[in-house]
Design a protein around this nucleic acid. Structure first.
Lengths: 164, 164
DNA sequence: TGATTTGTTTAGGTGTGCCTAAATAAACTC
DNA sequence: GAGTTTATTTAGGCACACCTAAACAAATCA
């Protein structure tokens, strides 16, 4: 076993970006990574050098970048967490797509695997009708939210949305 | 308005720690913060100097530390997110207390407020019986998990828990 | 092919958040 | 109240992740 060293959130982002760009374009170049992550060229180069050191990417100066098996595995893990979180926020919590994406981006690096797995299971569970009662839970929550909205027309106490 | 500057996750942790220690002991001292956050003395001093600069804590060398109003507000926000996440993981996802705490610690700094609010609402919703069908949803999910466990006795495919 | 444009890397610098070792202040103890 | 112990701060350093400016390589085009 080659040590399952943990990688920083930032490096995870680079791997994820390389994964997505490669899937879309066939190959990943610095320029695309810059655009996707909104960082400068030198930041990309530096990250690639570190990731190459860790045997996570195949990197030669001026050449297209590909993921090494180890890096691919990490990228897929991040993406899995991202998608799980996003879908959970949308399908269970009824959050809109944009906010769900944003939340997933922020949490994908810190969500623990047992919580992610529970989210997967919960989403699956909600997709089935509850056997005992036959109700559709997604629908129930949507109705509940509507009711709450009506009720709180009078008591206007909304939490500040400042820094989030 | 004095600029709602965002603060780093690390500084949020210091504020939260000071809040909790003060609530427990009446006052906060460096030593306690060190223990709670598992950092060295100089790290605490440095953070306090930065937080004092930002008018978030009242800090004089060698004196007990208290939260300034601004810092208290931030600390309460962090704690609110922490508790919301933890309770959601426990009450909705059925995660055990320890794992829920750990997950909440990691996510409290990045969870967006609209997602937090939805979690609050969802937890409230689950606590009520569903009016349409009269079932208890927490119970339903617990049963569902049990069923799944039985079914997957044969197909043993568990996701690696390595770095999370 | 030589000149220009575009992409990428090197050089050098910044802020944050941590550390250890050493200095200093405050609190105890005899 | 002098000496020791404990708490805290200062000094100095390190790793990470970013940046701009400048150098350099590759691609484009006239």
């Amino acid at each position: 076993m080659t040590k399952p060293k943990k990688i920083s959130a930032s490096l995870e982002d680079y791997l994820e970006a390389i994964y997505l760009i490669t899937r879309k374009n066939g190959e990943a170049r610095s320029k695309e990574i810059m655009k996707q992550l909104r960082v400068s060229g030198p930041s990309v180069t530096e990250a690639l050098q570190v990731l190459a050191e860790k045997k996570m990417v195949n990197y030669q100066p001026y050449e297209p970048i590909t993921l090494a098996p180890k890096g691919k595995k990490v990228a897929e893990g991040v993406l899995y967490r991202h998608e799980t979180l996003r879908d959970f926020f949308i399908e269970v919590l009824g959050v809109d797509r944009k906010a769900a994406e944003k939340g997933a981006c922020r949490m994908e690096h810190v969500a623990t695997s047992n919580i992610i797995e529970r989210m997967v299971k919960y989403t699956d569970y909600l997709k089935n009708e509850c056997k005992r009662c036959g109700c559709n839970k997604v629908h129930c929550f949507a109705e509940y939210l509507q009711d709450q909205k009506k009720k709180s027309r009078t008591s206007a106490e909304e939490v500040s949305d400042d820094e989030l």
